[in-house]
Design a protein around this nucleic acid. Structure first.
Lengths: 214, 214
DNA sequence: ATTTTTCTCCCTGTTTTCGGGGAGTAAAAA
DNA sequence: TTTTTACTCCCCGAAAACAGGGAGAAAAAT
């Protein structure tokens, strides 16, 4: 633990300063450096090869999750801790699938941060209580993020997408909405074009990821 | 509306009597006849060709939903109202998929019954508030059952399910696994049978819910 | 006022899904 | 040893999905 080398990536210098002090002075970890630009971090981190990368989620140009994804492709054994402000089901799931080792909220206390860093440095994972809650209560997946692909959809298209993702057939959807089958097929085609998928499986997947259903 | 011809199917004569009175005397609809035996109704309704069939769900020998399903095969344009005592998510979904035009609870007031009959006679649908609630709050029943069902899958089936949920087509899955298309189709059929769904959307849904894919 | 988007519905044709069978081999369970 | 399950592959036919197009009316945006 005494030799755990850490790099911070956060676009706010103030946060970097605060985290640096805590990590070095209080926890006693070794902070190699910090980046406020994710694109710079993308290039430099592979050179440093830190034990743990502490990354903010909300950053311009490249969000923390995408940064981690790209870096993991180069350094699969890289351990990562993701800091975030908001909790939405889709992002948590994405983080898990990318292989983030810890996922903690920004309104953290030092104790949580310390726990997560110590666990991750030992090769374990850590997800704070609210995170696991969000994972388990998938019904309440409130997505606050407005970066979703669903924004380009009309309300009618969203409605149809929801029903498709609930496993209703085209005919059943037509019945429920009192529309013709051909109309639902038109909407389905628009959905596939806008969301860039080519079968219902792709539609369902996006719908679930975006929290439109379940 | 004055010429809306209705048939009631309910195994309790008392209910038939009560509904008859309300429908005829108060609402002013034309009640053709009523059956207390669903099997008899199955034979006679196609002869009468009523505008609306008002059916109780809980009946011996043949439940109301199955009766409606069978009758709709013969008379697709038949309008139906389903009466039920209890609400469970699976039954509501099944009712929607069968194409029931109205679904109302037995602890109804006359107002609700009238609304539903008037709407259905105009070609619209009506689902009482508690029904739509149950549809939206998909909390307990499905997750429990699907979880136990997922454990009944073989590893190969799980593998195929995962790829289906990742929006790969049958052909693509066959290529990836170096198997014939027919084999993947067989696995898909087994998955649908075991998981009790009837299209790809249902499979994807369960897969995502169970965390098989992100 | 004009343009764009949405919503509805249609046509044609190809591909895939879906549901029902069966069948042989290998492995696992009873 | 017998039976069952998993895995592979096949047949068939009906239904649905998929892909491309168009078109008119209404609503929204410019």
């Amino acid at each position: 633990m005494e030799n755990t080398r850490i790099i911070i990536v956060d676009d706010h210098q103030l946060i970097i300063d605060g985290l640096s002090r805590i990590i070095q002075d209080i926890f006693g970890f070794e902070l190699i450096t910090a980046y406020h630009d994710p694109l710079e971090a993308l290039q430099k981190v592979p050179v440093w090869k830190p034990d743990i990368l502490l990354v903010d989620f909300e950053m311009p140009h490249l969000n923390g999750l995408d940064l981690i994804r790209k870096l993991k492709q180069q350094i699969p054994e890289l351990k990562t801790v993701l800091l975030t402000m908001h909790l939405d089901h889709a992002t948590v799931r994405e983080a898990l699938s990318v292989g983030v080792n810890a996922y903690i909220l920004k309104n953290l206390d030092e104790f949580e941060l310390r726990i997560s860093l110590e666990k991750v440095s030992k090769g374990q994972n850590y997800y704070s209580a609210p995170v696991t809650e969000v994972l388990n209560s998938r019904s309440k997946s409130i997505q606050k993020t407005s970066h979703s692909q669903l924004e380009s959809l009309s309300s009618r298209e969203r409605e149809v997408l929801k029903l498709i993702a609930e496993a209703f057939s085209t005919k059943e959807i037509a019945n429920q909405l009192s529309l013709e089958i051909s109309t639902i097929e038109s909407h389905r085609k628009s959905l596939m074009r806008k969301l860039n998928v080519h079968n219902v499986a792709g539609l369902v997947r996006i719908a679930v990821q975006e929290g439109l259903v379940s």
